[in-house]
Design a protein around this nucleic acid. Structure first.
Length: 198
DNA sequence: CACAAGATTCTCT
DNA sequence: GAGAATCTTGTGA
């Protein structure tokens, strides 16, 4: 499989958050590090709708040092830590509207030996089938906070068009009232790297 | 400055 | 299923 490693244009990120979350499925996420290049197709995402989404960090337009980047232009990287793990988001929507799309799972393509090293002892299927796992496998850290996805070392290129996409409630959020039932999770139907429902 | 909580993962039961 | 691991940020004194 040969793919052009040309980053998607800024305009790609300027669509509505839910549309972007769906459009990102099948795109290639690439991370270059001193150890080498890793990439994988995005197969699972979740939309976080800012002001009206209780489960979002930016609920009610809460603006802090951490959420600041979500108020910026679409296409920036929003990374943050969750206990011992780093999670990766793509900032979406217009400047001033703090929406984002969480990358939950990818299908590994390039840099397999490097990912195996970073995820030592796990079967390949479990290298990237979760938001904290894929950042570890690809070497994504807090240092990527605020980076823009149109430029190396962290960027997204065109991938393939998924045959079938499914949607459902998001995972891992609780005590957030109605927000936990919103069907804002998207995944490629049948892909083995999609994380399991709890 | 101290402390609590979290968009998770792993291990053990 | 439950509980721990272990780090950053947000909030309050």
């Amino acid at each position: 499989m040969k793919i052009d490693l040309i980053p998607l244009p800024q305009t790609f990120y300027e669509q509505s958050t839910l549309h972007l979350a769906e459009s990102l499925l099948g795109c290639l996420l690439v991370k270059e590090t001193p150890e080498g290049r890793c990439s994988g197709f995005i197969v699972e995402t979740e939309a976080y709708m800012g002001a009206n989404d209780r489960a979002a960090h930016s609920f009610g337009n809460r603006r802090t040092k951490r959420t600041e980047i979500m108020f910026s232009d679409a296409g920036h990287a929003y990374t943050y830590t969750m206990h011992t793990h780093v999670l990766l988001n793509v900032v979406s929507n217009k400047k001033g509207i703090p929406h984002g799309v969480l990358i939950r799972a990818i299908d590994p393509i390039e840099g397999l030996s490097l990912m195996e090293e970073r995820r030592k002892g796990r079967p390949m299927r479990e290298w990237t089938n979760g938001p904290g796992k894929l950042t570890k496998a690809m070497g994504i850290t807090l240092a990527d906070y605020g980076h823009h996805f149109t430029e190396p070392p962290l960027y997204i290129t065109q991938g393939y068009k998924p045959e079938k996409i499914e949607t459902g409630p998001r995972i891992g959020i609780k005590n957030t009232g109605e927000a936990r039932f919103y069907p804002w999770r998207f995944w490629v139907s049948g892909n083995p790297y999609v994380s399991k429902t709890r």
